[in-house]
Amino acid sequence: MTAIDPADLDLGLDTFGDITRDAAGERVSDAQTIRNVVEQAVLADEVGLAFFGVGEHHRPEFAVSSPEIVLAAAAARTKDIHLGTAVTVLSSDDPVRVYERFATLDAVSNGRAEVILGRGSFIESFPLFGYDLRDYETLFEEKLDLFSQLLTESPVTWQGSLRAPLEAADVFPKTAHGLTAWVGVGGTPESVVRAARYGYGLMLAIIGGPAARFRPFVDLYHRSLDSFGRDRLPVGIHSPGHIAETDQQAWEEAYEGFESMNNTIGRERGWPAYSRGRFQHDVGPEGALYVGSPETVARKIADTVGSLGSTRFDMKFSTGTLSHDKLMTSIELYGTRVQPLVREMLAERG
């Protein structure tokens, strides 16, 4: 276990804008789901959370395909919370446009913008925007290299194999203090080393198995930063969860949404049907779901950040059909009860 100073730990939230159902069981519209996401961000700010992330997807289960626009709406109604993506699929986007959009969001939010860059675990954006999946690795490597140079906010001269070159190209607007940028990693050593090489924070997406098994990736990240002559950079964690007053209530509320989402994606990827048995394992100590009462979730978060030495934990609080009112309750409990409990637990452990 690694001692974590409670003052150094940030707790945040992530959502993909999952299409939910209302109290009558009816499917909520895409438009209402997006408006609900903005309300969720406002509440997250009110209860003192550090970050609110919105993922980018291009498929029917998720309403948000342009997260920066949703985040800009949230920026206008929030004061302190940092706003970013979870993730931006850089491989099927243009790094110049990504920089420009986030620099604009940074201005609108008065310096609260963050970007988490990823290759994309869903591939719909590649054919949608005219990219060849055979270039999957090269696209991300080259675009990450270009984006890294754009972050300097100086004129960039760059050349790759899959995009037109740039010659002393300057991009606008400029930010007041630079952009905070991370790379989302699902657990491959090459991705960890890449994040260190380009000088990005490491955001580990832990959606299966015990968090402790990712410790070798954290150690590899730190060794890689040292080998590249870089200062220590933050390690964050993204994992799914849901909070209610009791464990049993949280499990009952969350199961249908997890079952729906896992079976929908599983049919495409050849996964076995989701079951209660698997769910109960996943919410236990050896699983990656942070579902339960405030005390249960706080204990699991404290264990996770201690085992990995991370200073940021983002709970992916929306999954499948879980309704907006239950999501709002989960956010409130996360900020008002889980957050102080985690800090108390970490302080007690020294």
Rank of each mutant, 00 (worst) to 15 (best):
Ala3Glu: 14
Asp10Gly: 15
Asp10Trp: 11
Asp14Leu: 15
Asp18Glu: 13
Asp18Phe: 09
Ile19Asn: 05
Ile19Ala: 05
Gln32Phe: 07
Gln32Asn: 09
Asn36Phe: 05
Val37Phe: 02
Glu39Lys: 15
Glu39Pro: 05
Gln40Met: 08
Val42Lys: 09
Ala44Arg: 01
Glu46Ala: 05
Ala50Pro: 00
Ala50Gln: 10
Glu56Tyr: 01
Arg59Leu: 15
Pro60Met: 06
Phe62Asp: 06
Glu68Met: 04
Glu68Gly: 03
Ala74Asn: 02
Ala76Trp: 09
Asp80Asn: 14
Leu83Phe: 03
Ala86Val: 06
Ser92Trp: 07
Asp94Met: 04
Asp94Phe: 07
Glu100Lys: 06
Thr104Ser: 11
Ala113Ile: 00
Val115Met: 04
Arg119Thr: 00
Gly120Phe: 00
Ile123Lys: 10
Ser125Leu: 11
Leu128Tyr: 11
Asp132Leu: 08
Arg134Ile: 14
Leu139Lys: 01
Asp145Gln: 11
Phe147Tyr: 05
Ser148Gly: 14
Thr152Ala: 12
Glu153Cys: 12
Ser154Ile: 06
Gly160Glu: 02
Leu162Tyr: 01
Ala164Trp: 14
Glu167Phe: 15
Glu167Ile: 15
Ala169Glu: 08
Ala169Cys: 13
Ala169Lys: 12
Asp170Tyr: 14
His177Trp: 10
Trp182Ile: 06
Val185Tyr: 07
Gly186Leu: 02
Thr188Ala: 12
Arg194Lys: 14
Tyr198Lys: 13
Arg213Pro: 03
Arg215Val: 00
Asp219Trp: 08
Arg223Cys: 12
Asp226Met: 10
Ser227Tyr: 12
Arg232Cys: 10
Pro234Ser: 10
Ile237Pro: 00
Pro240Val: 06
His242Ile: 06
Glu245Tyr: 11
Asp247His: 05
Gln249Lys: 10
Glu253Met: 05
Glu253Ala: 12
Tyr255His: 06
Thr264Tyr: 15
Gly266Phe: 03
Gly266Ile: 01
Arg269His: 14
Pro272Trp: 09
Arg276Trp: 15
Gly277Val: 03
His281Val: 13
Val283Asp: 02
Pro285Glu: 04
Pro285Leu: 07
Ala288Leu: 02
Pro294Thr: 04
Leu308Val: 03
Ser310Ala: 10
Thr319Met: 13
Thr319Ile: 09
Asp325Leu: 00
Lys326Met: 03
Met328Trp: 07
Ser330Ile: 01
Glu332Arg: 11
Gly335Cys: 00
Thr336Gln: 08
Arg337Met: 11
Arg337Ile: 06
Arg337Asn: 04
Gln339Tyr: 10
Gln339Gly: 13
Pro340Glu: 11
Arg343Glu: 04
Glu344Ala: 12
Ala347Ser: 10
